[in-house]
Design a binder for these strands. Structure first.
Length: 692
DNA sequence: TTTAGGG
DNA sequence: CCCTAAA
């Protein structure tokens, strides 16, 4: 029985994940740290990816040589229930830039283009001569992130709408347009007795794209598109006061300084467990886990990533290497995006904020009021890079001097398709937030197709200049619109049954079928319906008393699972080829999979272990596992080996140095003797061969 | 996949 | 517990 609630997600700000989380497991380990660093992937990457994606398309289409009909190699998507198959991913060529149509689920942003009043913008705006493809800069702003971001309050009540988009930026927020009355509905009897809260998020919007700041400050400037290698800028900003351009920064994966990141991270207060876990990161790590070799673990992981449909096997699903692969590719992609963004950083000039604010060393970010604030600096020319203010002025000046014929766009809103999230009631608000965030992130990661609509008609020819397309600074540009379509190629099928008729369909279909809903499912804490130890354990078998769930899940495990569920966010496929722009090294995602919860061995477990080892000896952990812990799913042979190792160590040290639940001396003695015995045996085996 | 060990 | 090289 599943209780599904539809909560009005309201208009809370959408916190763009910024800080790739370094799992606790990292604990200062070099290797882990390194990995975490390597795999840093944050929202910025994501946006960078989007931008890069757009950019790439722009390039493709603005380059005469390239066909505007970039072949889209369709890869028939296997829609079977198996996640592995589902994720099988094949290289795909860039999809046509112009989708040609935009259906209901297409994201349509309200864009208005207006002619700058006071002064003309020279570098910031696009020349009417620019081709449509060059039009893609996407400015995003994540308001309210710094302060409370998507707090539980805002999630539920969702009435705190952020107002007044900042210059040159678009703010992400859940629009309040869509309000879903709470309702409860029982789930289809799939066997599990869980309660889930379902949160549906309506359309989202991006706030103002281009500020109206043109009149005030004379504006935002972009280098002449023609003279730079046009890279659509993507700005991300959190908090209404400052804007952060998203540049793929080499040091910080396009994010801010560590400090900044921390600020963000820390704000995630109601997370007790692994915070800021990123789905993609998680998934990425799953890939690594491939080699761990424990099928069970892998399965478990898999179940975390995809819908944890409780099955007779205990809710375990197959893991998918394909997915991992996919994720890696995504990372790769996004990194490439970053590079392009970085590139752009040098060529674009902008002054998006009315009031000059502090600029960080790099001239990119700055902190303010404890909130996550950043300021775009002018990197117009490298020489100006470090001084936002002066650059600003310079920029303004040049703006006013610039010629006319530039059109200015203002995207008032950007709607993200409906999101459907399923989460157990027992999950924390924090996990809910994360899930939402990750879902959206995942969604965005797929990249977007940008379409241009002029008076309702889609402007397909990317090589036309704005002027030719009828987009001039003078007239009828009010009806200019953009369509942002998810660039999904396959449908994440972790969805809830088939209640939603239109999901994302492979976009390789004739008509693009953008997703209309993204679903994320968080498995309930008890989603691991492990057979209630129905079998009678063999003599030596240790039966975990509080085996996975069922019996009063501790708050720890409960939370753990809840947080694990974050990985269940759907991760749309990405058109890797299209996004491939940035080199891989930097922005993989941070590690996602969290460390397994610590489950201290109980005395009975220790006893079972000792007994098994006495009998089998060391070095046969697999057998020990089978013999004594076959029913303890969470104990792997590696765990047993480790435990033995610690037991031996414990037995050797003085009692007062021991920690944790004291192990009966009797057992420790047995450990020592068994250890001595088997060590001897091993030594014998080692020596024998040579004499013989 | 397992083992064996270092972290 | 994690991570991995080796077997």
């Amino acid at each position: 029985m599943v209780l599904q609630k539809r909560l009005d997600y309201g208009s809370c700000g959408y916190p763009v994940p910024v800080m790739p989380r370094v799992p606790k497991s990292a604990r200062g380990k070099r290797s882990v740290r390194k990995k975490a660093e390597e795999s840093q992937m944050c929202a910025f990457d994501l946006l960078a990816a989007v931008a890069g994606n757009l950019l790439l398309e722009a390039e493709n289409f603005s380059t005469p040589n390239k066909s505007t009909e970039t072949p889209c190699i369709a890869s028939p998507e296997d829609t079977t229930a198996k996640s592995e198959e589902r994720n099988t991913e094949k290289p795909v060529k860039a999809e046509p830039y112009d989708q040609g149509s935009c259906n209901k689920s297409t994201l349509v942003s309200e864009v208005s283009v207006q002619r700058p009043r006071s002064c003309q913008i020279k570098r910031q705006s696009y020349s009417p001569k620019a081709t449509l493809s060059e039009h893609v800069p996407v400015f995003m702003k994540n308001e309210g992130f710094g302060k409370d971001g998507c707090s539980g309050h805002s999630i539920v009540d969702g009435h705190n709408r952020v107002s007044g988009g900042s210059p040159g930026l678009v703010s992400w927020k859940c629009s309040s347009e869509k309000i879903f009355p709470s309702s409860a509905e029982s789930s289809e009897g799939n066997g599990d007795h869980q309660t889930k809260a379902r949160v549906q998020i309506g359309k989202w919007k991006l706030g103002n794209l281009v500020d109206n700041n043109a009149h005030n400050h004379g504006t935002c400037n972009l280098e002449d598109p023609m003279e730079l290698d046009v890279k659509p800028p993507v700005f991300i900003s959190s908090d209404s006061s400052v804007e952060a351009p998203f540049y793929g920064d080499h040091n910080a994966c396009g994010v801010a300084s560590p400090k900044l990141r921390n600020a963000v991270v820390d704000r995630d207060d109601d997370e007790n467990l692994s915070r800021n876990t990123h789905p993609s990161i998680m998934t990425y790590r799953a890939a690594r886990l491939r080699r761990i070799g424990n099928r069970r673990i892998r399965k478990l992981l898999a179940s975390r990533y995809w819908k944890a449909t409780p099955t007779s096997k205990g809710g375990e699903l197959c893991n998918s290497d394909a997915q991992s692969k996919l994720v890696r590719k995504m990372c790769y992609t996004s990194q490439r995006m970053q590079r392009s963004s970085f590139k752009q950083r040098k060529v674009f000039e902008r002054c998006s904020s009315p009031a000059p604010k502090a600029v960080s060393k790099e001239g990119i970010f700055s902190l303010g009021k404890g909130a996550f604030k950043t300021k775009v600096s002018d990197s117009h020319t490298t020489s100006h890079g470090a001084n936002g203010q002066s650059s600003s002025r310079i920029g303004q000046k040049s703006l006013c001097e610039s010629e006319d014929f530039h059109v200015k766009f203002s995207i008032k809103s950007f709607k993200v398709p409906e999101l459907l999230i399923e989460i157990p009631e027992t999950a924390t608000v924090g996990s809910l937030k994360r899930t939402v965030m990750e879902t959206v992130t995942a969604f965005l990661e797929g990249g977007l197709h940008v379409g241009v609509l002029l008076q309702g008609k889609k402007v397909r020819d990317d090589n036309k200049t704005l002027l030719q397309a009828g987009i001039s600074h003078g007239d009828k540009i009010d009806n200019l619109g953009f369509t942002l379509e998810p660039k999904l190629r396959q449908a994440p099928q972790i969805l809830m049954g088939s209640e939603d008729p239109h999901f994302f369909l492979p976009s390789d279909a004739k008509e693009p079928k953008p997703l209309s809903r993204i679903t994320a499912i968080i498995p309930p804490p008890t989603s691991d319906p492990r057979p209630f130890d129905a079998t009678i354990e063999p003599p030596l078998t240790f039966v975990d008393p509080e085996s996975d769930s069922i019996h009063s899940p501790t708050s720890e495990s409960l939370q753990d699972k809840a947080s694990n569920s974050r990985a269940l966010v759907s991760i749309p496929a990405v058109d890797v080829e299209a996004l491939a722009v940035v080199p891989l090294h930097k922005s993989k995602r941070a590690e996602l999979v969290q460390r397994r919860i610590r489950r201290p061995f109980t005395i009975s477990e220790v006893e079972a272990l000792v007994q098994a080892v006495e009998k089998l000896g060391t070095g046969r952990w697999r057998d020990v596992k089978v013999r004594a812990f076959d029913n303890a799913k969470h104990r792997t042979y590696v765990d047993l080996k480790d435990k033995w190792k610690t037991l031996v160590h414990t037995a050797k040290i003085s009692p007062h140095q021991r920690r944790g639940e004291p192990v009966p001396q009797e057992l420790l003695d047995r450990v020592l003797s068994a250890h001595a015995y088997w060590s001897q045996q091993q030594a014998k085996l080692q020596v024998k061969p040579s004499p013989a």
